[in-house]
């Protein structure tokens, strides 16, 4: 089938099997490799993209479901001119990533959460983020970074635990 949709603001027409998951179409046909393959069953969230603003697992979503829709990937969430989204800035300030493989999906889920809920509680974060696995265990920092993005991100120029009065100790 001929799939017509918008990806990161750019209209695309792509020939694909309608059943091919959107993940592989993005990665292989559009070379948008920031979206990752983790499980193929929608269990880990590494492949999270936004369809019309809603977070979806692209590894199980057939390409046909994107027909006429607006798709946003990790490559497309910066504010403008290659600048970072506030969620990405918070991730950077909190040194969230380790191996980094799951982080595109984590960031996409967090952006979607803050779009719908600008001041999430811990329970809200649990509900929105527990579908995104991280084997390195960056969860405490993800939680802290979401709170940071939601609150004082504009006020913080860079993160140094010692300036926060925590010495080399962090309550996460």
């Amino acid at each position: 089938m001929l799939l017509e949709f918008t990806v990161n603001g750019v209209p695309h027409r792509v020939d694909t099997d309608p059943e091919q998951p959107l993940l592989w179409l993005l990665r292989e046909q559009l070379q948008l490799t920031g979206t990752k393959f983790g499980c193929g069953m929608g269990l880990c969230g590494a492949c999270t993209v936004h369809i019309d603003g809603a977070p979806m697992r692209s590894c199980t979503l057939p390409a046909v479901a994107a027909q006429g829709r607006v798709v946003t990937t990790i490559e497309g969430i910066g504010v403008a001119n290659g600048e970072l989204h506030p969620v990405q800035s918070a991730w950077l300030l909190m040194n969230v990533p380790q191996c980094g493989y799951c982080q595109s999906g984590q960031v996409m889920s967090a952006v979607a959460l803050l779009n719908s809920n600008p001041k999430p509680s811990d329970d809200d974060i649990d509900n929105a983020m527990s579908g995104n696995l991280c084997r390195c265990g960056t969860y405490p920092r993800i939680r802290a970074a979401i709170h940071l993005a939601a609150s004082e991100i504009q006020a913080v120029s860079y993160y140094d635990p010692r300036e926060q009065g925590l010495d080399q100790e962090r309550s996460s």
């Binding site: 490799t33 040194n95 980094g100 960031v107």
Partner: peptide, 22 residues
């Protein structure tokens, strides 16, 4: 030094893993 140098690429989808090599 207290920041990770690879963090920026890893939160923008630019970090290259085996699967991403063209």
């Amino acid at each position: 030094h207290n920041q990770r140098l690879d963090a920026l690429d890893k939160i923008t989808g630019k970090a290259q893993y085996a699967m991403d090599v063209q």
